[in-house]
Simulated assay, not measured.
Amino acid sequence: MPSRPLRIVVLLFPRVTQLDFTGPAQVFSKFPDTEVHLAWHNLDPVPTDAGWCIVPTTTLDECPQADILFVPGGAGAFDMFDDPNALAFLRTQGRKARWITSVCTGSFTLAAAGLLTGYRATSHWASLQMLEHFGVHPTPERVVRDRNRITGAWVTSGIDFAFTLAAELFGDDEARRIQLAIEYDPEPPFDHGSPCKADPEEVKSIVAATENLRMAQVRRSSSALADAQHLSGLARFT
Rank of each mutant, 00 (worst) to 15 (best):
87 L>G: 07
132 E>P: 02
133 H>Q: 14
129 Q>T: 15
123 S>T: 04
149 R>F: 01
108 F>N: 02
112 A>F: 03
80 M>C: 14
81 F>G: 00
117 T>F: 00
91 R>N: 09
127 S>Y: 10
131 L>R: 06
74 G>M: 09
105 T>M: 06
134 F>C: 07
110 L>A: 00
131 L>G: 05
119 Y>R: 14
112 A>S: 15
123 S>K: 05
151 T>R: 02
96 K>D: 15
99 W>I: 08
102 S>H: 08
108 F>Y: 14
153 A>V: 10
118 G>T: 12
143 V>W: 04
146 D>R: 02
103 V>C: 13
101 T>F: 02
150 I>W: 08
100 I>W: 05
108 F>G: 02
132 E>A: 15
122 T>A: 05
134 F>W: 10
92 T>N: 13
80 M>R: 13
124 H>E: 03
115 L>T: 02
101 T>R: 03
120 R>I: 06
77 A>L: 10
80 M>K: 07
144 V>R: 02
85 N>Y: 00
158 G>F: 09
77 A>H: 00
108 F>C: 01
136 V>S: 12
110 L>C: 07
156 T>D: 07
119 Y>L: 11
94 G>N: 04
101 T>A: 05
118 G>P: 10
114 G>Q: 05
133 H>S: 15
83 D>W: 04
133 H>V: 07
130 M>I: 13
146 D>I: 01
76 G>F: 03
125 W>Q: 11
93 Q>K: 05
140 P>T: 08
118 G>F: 11
154 W>Y: 08
104 C>H: 08
88 A>T: 15
98 R>L: 07
147 R>N: 15
85 N>K: 15
140 P>G: 08
140 P>M: 08
104 C>T: 11
115 L>K: 02
108 F>S: 07
100 I>F: 00
143 V>E: 10
152 G>Q: 11
76 G>L: 02
142 R>L: 11
140 P>W: 04
151 T>M: 01
97 A>C: 00
103 V>Q: 01
145 R>C: 10
90 L>C: 01
160 D>S: 11
155 V>F: 00
100 I>C: 04
89 F>E: 01
142 R>Q: 14
75 A>L: 14
157 S>R: 12
75 A>N: 13
108 F>K: 05
135 G>C: 12
113 A>H: 09
135 G>P: 07
139 T>G: 08
115 L>H: 08
81 F>Q: 02
158 G>T: 12
74 G>C: 05
158 G>N: 10
102 S>D: 11
141 E>F: 04
92 T>P: 00
96 K>H: 15
114 G>P: 05
110 L>K: 08
125 W>N: 09
99 W>M: 07
97 A>W: 01
88 A>P: 00
146 D>M: 09
144 V>E: 04
115 L>M: 13
151 T>I: 05
95 R>D: 02
116 L>F: 06
160 D>Q: 11
112 A>M: 06
160 D>R: 07
105 T>V: 14
87 L>T: 04
125 W>V: 11
155 V>E: 00
92 T>A: 15
103 V>G: 01
113 A>Y: 06
95 R>I: 10
116 L>E: 08
148 N>A: 09
104 C>Y: 09
128 L>W: 05
95 R>W: 03
137 H>D: 13
150 I>L: 15
128 L>S: 03
156 T>N: 09
113 A>P: 07
97 A>F: 03
120 R>F: 09
101 T>I: 06
86 A>G: 07
97 A>S: 11
81 F>E: 03
81 F>I: 02
